[in-house]
């Protein structure tokens, strides 16, 4: 039996603790809806994100990477 499923991409989001992580939190408490495709990784600062993190995310199967700070 085959199930026709829509492609659900995995987006890895590196979010700064102080900026966009708070932004995501605000979106949550304000009950705003956004796609559940993003997997949020909280980083102390977007400066923590090493280019090899991005490469590693792609290697391990991410379809997109968002760095936000």
């Amino acid at each position: 039996m085959s199930i026709a499923t829509e492609f659900n991409p995995i987006i890895v989001g590196f979010n700064c603790n102080w900026c966009s992580y708070a932004g995501a939190d605000l979106a949550g408490v304000s009950r705003m809806k956004y796609p559940a495709n993003v997997r949020v990784i909280r980083v102390p600062c977007s400066g923590r994100v090493n280019p090899s993190f991005v490469l590693r995310a792609f290697q391990k199967g991410a379809d997109g990477v968002l760095v936000s700070g």
Binding site: G23, A27, Y34, P35, N37, G64, L66, S68
Partner: peptide
């Protein structure tokens, strides 16, 4: 691969960014 500047008070920008990016991908 995208980089965006979203501040702590921009919940709406966060949701639109995620929406746009999901659509794009």
């Amino acid at each position: 691969f995208q980089a965006r500047w979203i501040s702590g008070s921009e919940g709406a920008k966060f949701t639109t960014t995620i929406k746009d990016m999901t659509e794009k991908i």
